[in-house]
Amino acid sequence: MAIHRIPKSKQKPRSPVLLLVISIAVIAFLWLFCSSSSMAGFSFSSARTLVNVRGLKKDRNYGLEKYLYWGNRIDCPGKHCDSCEGLGHQESSLRCALEEALFLQRTFVMPSRMCINPIHNKKGILHQSKNANSEEEWAASSCSMDSLYDLDLISDTVPVILDNSKIWHQVLSTSMKLGARGVAHVEGINRIDLKENNAYSNLLLINRTASPLSWFMECKDRNNRSSIMLPHSFLPSMATKKLWDVAEKVKRLLGDYDAIHVRRGDKIKTRKDRFGVERSLHPHLDRDTRPEFILRRIAKWVPPGRTLFIASNERKPGFFSPLSTRYKLAYSSNYSLILDPVIENNYQLFMIERLILMGAKTFIRTFKEDDTDLSLTDDPKKNTKDWQIPVYTMDE
């Protein structure tokens, strides 16, 4: 199409409105051009750095963070790495490590897998070959961390990455290039010094694996409650969405219910002293967790006729049946059609049960976690190392 020039003498004055419209159009075009360039830059540079970081949010710049590493196994007591504790024990360690990351304002490098002790797993994920090497055995006797926890949800409080992510490998590579300026292997240094001493606070990576102790032993001295930054309920409430959804289905079927957690098998241990007398670290526990004593204990908290959900590691069939004289009993096994397609191991089952327990109108624990908790026994949960003669009568 031919463009005919109009002599300047014949041009009409341009309208101010027209000039304003043209200006807005030019600004809009420039804005769109800059935006597309910016997004293209993100796609080809930053995205490579942030890949495989589950739960990443736009307001988190992991590429500029400082990191805290405690090791690739939560429960590895020094040289005895073949042993493995239960979920609650490992969570105590994990929660303490997360607290340190929160205190230091660092991203926590979380193990990508969690060890599962065979005695805590009845679903049979332990299919170990006789010719398997140690890493293959570890993979067979563990489960992926993101099958248990919602890492995005955890990162809302404490930013975390997994130790099999690309960004972690990038951090390792960078720290090796920086040498002494990039990483410090610390042992016996408290978190306050790590935060306030510039020799540590400015480093890219702090590595806690110099200690031969297990995570739990590193975190064992937690008597100063004012120093605890994450509550006991933090990790139980961080269950992955799949487990939350299953727990919600069961809770809807239960309706209005109360719940008790009865811990027996792993805590009722006795040994004979030099005179042949049986002694226990929890002298009242066996008594307090038997049905006849449970009925007496919870009568003031749970009215007759209520639905009572029971979570327990007691293996004797029908052990809690005497409670049915006063309550309508419910167990996770009653909902196997909902649970079995989802759960792969007992850790997942226990996490679902915990969510159900937390949703009860009245929840009664075995041991008190806090002073306000309702509990079946007054024995302390912590190991007092005081072996006493078990009590089986009602000694008021």
Results as ranks from 00 to 15, higher is better:
D370I: 08
N345F: 05
Y327W: 15
V183H: 04
V262E: 04
I6P: 01
S92Q: 14
L18C: 09
L235R: 01
F319I: 00
D373C: 09
E65V: 05
S155W: 02
Q11W: 08
F42C: 10
S173Q: 12
D379Q: 09
I356D: 00
K123P: 00
S211V: 00
T174E: 14
Y62V: 00
H284F: 10
K385Q: 03
D193S: 15
I268Q: 06
L254V: 04
T325Y: 08
K241Q: 14
P111T: 11
M110K: 01
A239V: 02
D379M: 00
T157M: 09
N164L: 06
N133A: 10
F234C: 12
L323T: 01
W168L: 03
L20M: 15
D221A: 15
S336E: 11
C34E: 15
L204R: 10
Y69T: 03
S45T: 15
L102Q: 13
S23M: 11
Y335R: 11
K123R: 15
T307L: 10
S333C: 06
F234M: 08
S201Q: 06
T325Q: 13
M351N: 01
F320M: 06
I260N: 03
N207Q: 07
I268D: 04
R365W: 14
F319M: 03
N117Q: 13
K316G: 00
I206K: 05
D163Q: 06
L64Y: 03
E344T: 08
F320R: 01
R264G: 05
